[in-house]
Amino acid sequence: GWPLFLSVGVFSAVVNLLMLTGPLFMLQVYDRVLASRSVETLTALFVLVIFLFALMGAIDIIRNRVMQRIAARFQDRMEGRVFDAALREGALRGDESAATAGGMRDLDSVQRLIGSPVMLAFFDLPWAPLFLAAVFMFHPVLGIVATVGGGILVGTTILNRVLTRAPLQGSAQAGAQAQRLADLYRDEGEVIGALGMRGATFARWRLARSESQDNAVRAGDLSAGFSVFSRTFRLFLQSAMLAAGAWLVLRQELTPGAMI
């Protein structure tokens, strides 16, 4: 397992370094190509950029596939233990099938988490301070703009998480209750019909479903608002960085290429 995680770390390092391809290409265009008006230099740089971006994409695909294999191996190693533990818990509760199904669903959720982009974000996270340090090397003003902008984006993500947690939990709980009611009504359908309680049972199930849906919609609205703000602010941050760089060029504190 650990050699695979190490390989993902190496691939992540290469991918993050290759992310500098675009800014470095623009820097070379402004400092070299436009100054020399050399089409040959532009062509050579562009061919190199195509190769580096293709390499970055290929390595990114490889590390995603490695993470999927890590997740699958984790599930293979753990499903026997989870199955036995769920059976023992079910025997204590007197409902082995439900406990087993719940345990395997939890294992599937963990497997999907390991194989998701969230895990790859942990490998990319340590590179953020290095990129900020590189921006500060160009000029402290650019570093401050990038740091403040990054802090706003991180704060937005945390706020999104905090504000959507309650409606998401409410939606999940109401959905689970609706599912339990549906299972109960399915198993006891004849008794419910004989007692003339179909309308009342459907109303209880419908109430739980409506509560789950309302909470899901509320969480979705909040999440969508934060997502739109984050996407818009990232675009604004790029323009703010260019504006700050242009201001520094006008003050003759940067060369035109260094502001890219």
Rank of each mutant, 00 (worst) to 15 (best):
V217Y: 09
A166L: 10
G115P: 10
V8K: 03
A203M: 13
A203Y: 10
R204D: 15
E40W: 01
V118I: 13
Q179N: 09
G196Q: 02
V47I: 13
L107N: 13
L42S: 13
V66R: 00
V141F: 15
R218P: 01
G9I: 00
R161M: 07
L159Q: 14
I192H: 10
R32H: 06
V135D: 02
A146G: 02
R65Y: 07
A172R: 10
V154N: 12
L235C: 11
A176P: 07
A176H: 07
R93F: 11
V8E: 04
L250A: 15
G103D: 04
E253T: 07
V10W: 12
A216K: 09
R180C: 11
D214A: 11
E79V: 01
V29Q: 03
L107I: 07
L242P: 15
G150H: 00
E211G: 03
S171Y: 01
V33A: 00
R186Q: 15
A203K: 14
L113P: 06
F236Y: 02
L222A: 02
E190L: 13
A134N: 04
H139N: 13
A174M: 03
I260D: 10
N64H: 11
V8H: 05
L6P: 02
L20S: 15
V217H: 12
R77S: 06
L184W: 10
G150F: 00
T21D: 06
L45W: 08
V14T: 07
L207S: 14
A133M: 03
G257A: 06
L34V: 01
D108Y: 14
R204V: 14
R161W: 07
T201M: 15
L163Y: 12
V33Q: 00
L237N: 04
L27T: 00
L18Y: 05
W127S: 05
W127A: 08
S7R: 06
G220Q: 04
Q177W: 04
V162K: 09
F226D: 07
Q179E: 04
R206K: 12
D84W: 05
A133Y: 03
A258C: 14
S171H: 05
A121V: 02
T157Q: 12
L237Q: 06
T232W: 14
L87P: 03
D60F: 07
A72Q: 10
E40C: 00
P256A: 01
T232V: 14
G196W: 02
A54Q: 05
V249D: 09
R206Q: 15
V118M: 14
T156A: 14
D76P: 04
V145S: 09
D31F: 03
G57E: 09
E89N: 09
